[in-house]
Design a protein around this nucleic acid. Structure first.
Length: 759
DNA sequence: ATAGGGTTAG
């Protein structure tokens, strides 16, 4: 007997557990309740697979209350409520009387699923037991009503330290700092658990100062106390403090456990530093630490955040049945972060259950990878899925998706949804609204949200400034720059890009030059804005001079501005210079070849036009596909050049023919048919077909109410041809047409366009 | 036996 007992004590992992089990079978001891209970206890400690534990359980001939209790513990630790309840059922059927040891387990497991055993226990007269009473109170503090917990607490005649600790944790759970602190001060005797609960409580309130104060003042510390403080730092983004406290812990001679490693690993993940991650992995390997599923999931996440998808997936596959919801979510996030939406979606639809984080990861993942329409589809799918409510994080992604698509209708619906569901927004929520309205060209609404906000940050300002910049409203943008300085919010590089873009779009040379000179350490994008500004006001030689003295390598955007301006001002020399640079930097971009060829064409240099065309063929330049889209009745309708695939295609072309006819009648010369390119004309002039933005506008004319603003988004630059067409259409139709391209708005009204581009 | 620490989404 004592021989086996000492063997049992030496078991430290699953392999040794199996050896010990085999040893018992050899000696035919594996039917005895004592050993069965002990084996199940070891299964719990070493996270053995449930079928293995069940097999041990079933070898008991007549399981007694100890066997049942340990098996309940096993299932309870796994959080398998249905198994816990089934076992409790079996227990009653076999007439094994549950004792006071069983109930706390039941209450805890059921509590997580929101089931209360209180009534049942009252009936059994067990509510007087001090342990059961404590667990019931704890249950109410965690999952039910803290007031009920308090009532029970007040009725306890001689309160134990555990009772005090339960009620204090309960208050922290509900964020009631005041009551938690009051009870802490009233407590006659405190132990290490009380102090640790205070550290965790303050950490959860993001009050790391007080958390650390309690940590420093506690009379004794356990490994749990250290973990609480390190995790507190880790969860609030204080990576350095977490790691330095960890090394302090090591110097204090405290042995880190798995939870310590989870906190340390997650700290390194948020830093995203592969070197730091590597050194942690080395440490973990060197110490030969047993890795439970929490540690493995934390490692998975760390690899995902450092861009090592293969290692992340390897851990995911190895975890097998030990994967939980968090593991799945971490893996999905790793894929979306790497831009692999296909793999992310595959896992998303495979996972056994989803929570709000799963949905948010997927929705935000789509949005960040340019799949805004898919993000919105997923959001609708989520709403159809009863039982899960979106939260602010969901809404921020969806609102941003609306902004990206210019889907104002949908955006307004989302805002209504927020009010109806009484969802409170934080700064980032408001910021996403400003971004959305700015991207939809509703600067009035964007400004209104901005003004309604109690506190604003640099992102709020940037969103609004970028909006005004796209609109070409330099005055408002520059005014916001001084306003933010008044509010002592420090502008960042994005702010300056916005201001310079606004100056460029509004042609404010002097203002822009002043802003550029005041920019601290301007980077390549700031130079690009300034070059663009010189180009737009026609000072091409100054633009070239600025390019020549840039302290860094110019990117394609810089030469792009110059090339475009060279075409407008018919400067062959600068056009050739810019185009040659661009052919090196982005040889696949067809637009550059077309622009240069147009410059030659306008100068009548036809042999050069042919040369460029030949170059395009030789370089096998792909045509850049530009999409245009327009929102109608909650749907996004997409068009590509020469598109005939839309269900209303015939009517769309009829609208265009109709407009063309009216143009002729109104005396416009429909040269090259700026509204419609017929199939015959396409063939004749080697054209691909009618521009996508014209199709989108025609669709909008067809389906929307007369007099309403037409909003179209184009993912490339709006060309001169369309520009002319939309001016005329706005006059003929008596409608406002708002086209958003790459980075700016063209607002057509009564035959004019708001933007000051020269063509 | 009851009370304290853990991984995921913006």
């Amino acid at each position: 007997m004592s021989h086996f007992k000492s063997l049992a004590q030496k078991v430290i992992n699953q392999t040794q557990l199996k050896q010990f089990h085999a040893h018992l079978i050899q000696n035919s001891l594996h039917h005895q309740n004592y050993w069965v209970a002990l084996l199940i206890h070891l299964c719990t400690r070493f996270h053995a697979p449930p079928p293995y534990a069940a097999c041990i359980f079933n070898s008991a001939l007549q399981p007694n209350v100890f066997v049942f209790t340990n098996m309940l513990k096993f299932h309870s630790q796994r959080g398998a409520l249905s198994d816990v309840l089934a076992l409790f059922d079996q227990m009653q059927k076999l007439d094994v009387k549950p004792d006071a040891f069983v109930y706390p387990l039941l209450i805890k497991s059921a509590g997580k699923a929101g089931i209360s055993f209180h009534a049942h226990l009252l009936k059994m007269g067990l509510d007087c037991d001090k342990y059961i009473c404590n667990v019931i109170m704890d249950f109410y503090g965690k999952y039910g009503h803290i007031e009920t917990a308090r009532k029970l607490f007040d009725e306890i005649p001689d309160k134990s330290v555990a009772d005090w600790n339960s009620i204090i944790s309960g208050y922290w759970n509900w964020g009631n700092e005041l009551e938690a602190k009051t009870l802490f001060d009233l407590m006659p005797e405190k132990n290490v658990i009380t102090w640790t609960a205070m550290v965790t409580g303050y950490s959860k309130m993001k009050d790391l100062k007080n958390a650390r104060m309690f940590f420093d003042e506690m009379p004794e510390r356990s490994v749990v106390s250290w973990n609480a403080m390190i995790s507190g730092y880790a969860q609030n983004g204080f990576t350095e403090q977490a790691l330095s406290l960890f090394s302090e812990m090591l110097s204090a001679g405290i042995r880190p456990d798995e939870t310590t490693w989870v906190a340390v690993i997650s700290s390194c993940s948020s830093s995203g530093d592969p070197n730091l991650a590597g050194s942690v992995v080395n440490m973990v390997n060197a110490k030969g630490i047993r890795l439970n599923s929490f540690v493995k999931t934390a490692l998975l996440d760390m690899y995902g955040k450092c861009g090592n998808l293969d290692m992340a997936r390897k851990i995911f596959d190895e975890l097998g049945v030990y994967r939980n919801l968090v593991t799945w979510n971490a893996m999905i996030a790793a894929y979306t972060r790497a831009g692999d939406l296909a793999s992310a979606r595959e896992l998303f639809y495979q996972m056994p259950e989803k929570n709000i984080i799963s949905w948010n990861s997927m929705i935000a993942g789509c949005q960040q990878n340019g799949q805004s329409a898919m993000a919105i589809e997923l959001f609708k799918e989520m709403l159809a899925n009863k039982g899960l409510r979106p939260d602010e994080i969901t809404m921020v992604s969806v609102i941003s998706a609306c902004g990206h698509l210019g889907a104002l209708e949908l955006g307004n619906w989302v805002v209504e949804f927020l009010t109806e569901n009484q969802m409170k927004l934080s700064i980032s929520g408001y910021n996403s609204l400003i971004y959305m309205y700015s991207k939809c060209g509703s600067m009035g609404q964007a400004k209104k949200i901005f003004q309604e906000m109690g506190t604003r940050d640099v992102i709020s300002y940037n969103a609004l400034i970028t909006g005004f910049a796209a609109y070409g409203n330099g005055i408002e943008a520059v005014a916001l720059l001084s306003k933010m300085k008044q509010e002592s919010i420090e502008p960042d590089r994005i702010t300056y890009i916005g201001i310079l873009t606004a100056c460029s779009h509004s042609g404010s040379l002097e203002e822009g030059r002043k802003v550029f000179e005041s920019t601290q350490a301007p980077d390549v994008d700031h130079y690009a804005c300034m070059v663009d500004l010189y180009c737009r006001v026609g000072k091409l030689d100054e633009a070239k001079r600025l390019i020549d003295c840039m302290p860094m390598h110019p990117h394609a955007g810089v030469y792009g501005s110059l090339l475009n301006a060279s075409r407008v001002h018919k400067r062959i020399d600068l056009g050739e210079f810019a185009a040659n640079k661009l052919f090196e930097l982005e040889p696949e971009n067809s637009g550059n070849y077309v622009l240069l060829s147009n410059i030659y064409a306008s100068a009548g240099r036809w042999e050069d036009v042919d040369r460029i065309r030949g170059l395009m063929k030789k370089e096998r330049v792909k045509k850049t596909t530009g999409w245009s889209w327009v929102e109608h009745a909650g749907k996004i309708h997409r068009f590509i050049v020469g598109d005939h695939s839309h269900e209303l295609s015939l009517e769309i072309y009829r609208v265009l023919r109709d407009i063309k006819e009216r143009m002729r009648n109104a005396g416009y010369i429909a040269d090259k048919s700026c509204v419609l390119r017929d199939v015959e004309e396409e063939e004749k002039e080697e054209m691909v077909g009618t521009h996508s933005e014209k199709l989108a506008v025609a669709f909008a004319i067809l389906v929307s109410e007369p007099g309403t603003i037409i909003r179209v988004v184009k993912n490339l630059r709006v060309c001169r041809d369309c520009h002319t067409a939309f001016k005329i259409i706005s006059e003929l139709e008596g409608r406002e047409i708002l086209v958003r391209d790459n980075n700016r708005f063209h607002c057509f009204k009564d035959g004019f366009c708001s933007c000051k581009d020269h063509w």
